[in-house]
């Protein structure tokens, strides 16, 4: 969208100072492209922009949120197996760095706290660990895949208590 800003930040400040002197508590500007709501709050004013409800006609096609891995994983039956869900959305890695051997492979023994993989979220790394002793039964998500929170990453066959 070769979009004009339509209203610059200075324009918004001007509108606020005009309506601030009036008795109005709310101003709403809506076009086919955006909606702006200015409201009084706590001695001041808030601005709320919404460009997303108004369809941008020539904007690029909507991009799928990383959902690919979720549906497939959720459909798997987990009979007798413990699912390992992703604690955060992000990118799932099976190894500490590119080229390094994976933390675990199918058939590996794990204990409580064994690192199964890492998830990179907003440039921070979080580890995913096993919750108890068992064997890696199935790895459902490939290295480097974008995942949602709660995506089942792998299935663990727990040791019998």
């Amino acid at each position: 969208m070769a979009g004009e800003f339509t209203l610059s930040p200075e324009d918004v400040a001007d509108i606020v100072s005009i309506v601030d002197a009036s008795g109005y508590g709310k101003v709403e500007v809506a076009t086919t492209r955006f909606r702006l709501v200015l409201s009084r709050k706590n001695e001041g004013w808030t601005q709320e922009w919404n460009w997303h409800q108004a369809p941008a006609a020539d904007a690029p096609a909507q991009v799928a949120v990383p959902a690919a891995a979720t549906a497939a994983a959720a459909a798997v039956g987990h009979a007798g197996l413990t699912p390992v869900p992703a604690p955060l959305p992000g990118t799932f890695y099976r190894a500490p760095q590119p080229g390094a051997p994976p933390y675990v492979n199918e058939g590996d023994r794990v204990d409580e706290g064994t690192i199964l993989g890492i998830i990179e979220t907003m440039k921070l790394m979080s580890t995913v660990s096993a919750s108890g002793p068992g064997t890696v039964a199935q790895i459902l998500v490939a290295n480097g895949t974008a995942i949602d929170a709660q995506t089942v990453l792998m299935l663990i066959k727990p040791d019998l208590a």
Binding site: V12, V16, S17, Q47, W49, W51, Q53, V65, P66, M122
Partner: peptide
């Protein structure tokens, strides 16, 4: 919902409006 302040002496530099998606791949 993203309500940012507005008025004299206030500048907001943001790319987030109501409905925006904050992807997990970049900084926060």
């Amino acid at each position: 919902r993203a309500l940012w302040p507005a008025g004299t002496g206030i500048r907001v530099d943001t790319h987030t409006d109501t409905g925006a998606l904050v992807p997990p791949y970049y900084d926060s």
